[in-house]
Design a protein around this nucleic acid. Structure first.
Lengths: 238, 238
DNA sequence: CGCTTGGTGTTATCGTCGATGACATGGATA
DNA sequence: TATCCATGTCATCGACGATAACACCAAGCG
């Protein structure tokens, strides 16, 4: 086993198990069975070690995901890319934080690769004339929103318990950068109906308590609100 | 001058000038003219000191912005809130990173207050029947996207040079959570809300049976429909 | 073969950091 | 006046990132 590789693997292991999201060079060198100066000769400094580790973890995850090849519809790839990004963040929160929250002094290659993959999908969409903004602008909008959602899910899971959040923000951004698909009228009608239901439930939910005179008992109100919330919160495909 | 206040001000000063975004307790105690243990007695630990400092900086910024009072259009307030959030991040990047990137073990009050202000505006919109999702969901969507944009602008300014990015993402999210404005904005809010309420009840009433999968038992459906009919048929203004 | 050279790893140590125990001081209170 | 608590200081600890100095060893070359 390559010394460099075993150090990186030890770092990845410790990082994944670290509650604080940090790792000491001493712990790494001990786990890898070497002395500290080895790390500094191979990686320059701690930041370099972490950067190499993040790239390693990212490559591993991406490799296991690359089985899902490019579909013929770039929109599908765009959605899959977003979901994959979010899933990686949840699967490797500490590595993800290092990747985007940037305690590192220089950007990991993984962050640039994520951006590259995203831009490539967007350029395919642009070639089909389905983008309403430049691929660059679209890439920035998608990437910033995606990292925002992912970091929130990671660092404040209690505040963001909703499983649909990522998909909702995803579709919000996608609708903003994409031209509306011309066909699929039936599908659009379905979505519109579903949307109207949720909007109606939301509207009612916010005003049930203010009916005057109040036609419901408190218990009735509570039950009604619970049902309305269920309708308002029901997930919706694009 | 209060010792606690002068320590916080010294910390804020050092934090603003710190290239790394970090501050040592030694530097703080020296700048404030006290010894280290004072910090630990007043703030518990370094995290507590930073949290107090973030709250202080945020309050200062918010105070200078509170001159812009609530307008009569909550949508204007929603946009202003987003822009204000982004502007704060750019004006106080280190404080902002502490606020949302969370090296802190517990959340600063400032982060919760930002969320509170946002939710309040969204609830005003919901009462006017202009939200297509629950205020909670809307708040999460707006907050995550906004922090994502702000963190990207702060930590990767070279990758995100576009000045329009924040506004583009802002409007993308707002379009996704808001109903398209139907008529003129001159409609009286109360009447519109009342109309919207009855219309919402009618809309829901006609589709309760068509939910797939059906989330309610037949008995629940029956009761829900009875209540909705009551709301839909109510003629009294609120 | 014997000598050099460069890659690899070790030992010992530095300066900084967050944190804390033990002690001093000074004013309010009983 | 005696007591007590709030406030602050001095001295120090253990963990950390980082580095200088040295040890080993196989490859290349006269």
């Amino acid at each position: 086993m390559d010394t460099r590789s075993s150090i990186i693997e030890a770092t990845a292991e410790l990082l994944a198990r670290s509650p604080s999201g940090d790792v000491s060079t001493r712990a790494v060198s001990e786990a890898a069975g070497v002395q500290q100066p080895v790390l500094y000769r191979l990686f320059g400094d701690k930041s370099g070690l972490l950067r190499a580790t993040v790239d390693y973890v990212w490559d591993q995850y991406l490799g296991s995901k690359r089985a899902a090849e490019k579909s013929d519809d770039p929109l599908e790839d765009l959605r899959a890319g977003w979901d994959s990004h979010t899933a990686f963040a949840l699967a490797h929160p500490n590595a993800y934080k290092l990747m985007f929250s940037s305690a590192l002094d220089s950007e990991p290659e993984a962050a640039e690769e994520a951006m590259r993959i995203l831009r490539e999908v967007l350029e395919r969409l642009a070639k089909q004339g389905r983008l309403r903004v430049t691929p660059d602008m679209a890439a920035r909008m998608v990437m910033t929103a995606n990292t925002g959602v992912a970091l929130a899910l990671i660092t404040r899971p209690r505040l963001y318990p909703d499983q649909n959040l990522s998909v909702m923000v995803r579709d919000a951004i996608h609708r903003a950068i994409l031209l509306a698909p011309e066909g699929t009228a039936a599908h659009a009608a379905d979505a519109a109906a579903h949307d109207a239901r949720r909007a109606a439930a939301t509207t009612l939910l916010s005003s049930v308590d203010e009916f005057t005179p109040q036609p419901f008992t408190p218990a009735e109100s509570a039950l009604l609100k619970q049902w309305l919330a269920q309708i308002a919160g029901s997930g919706q495909p694009s």
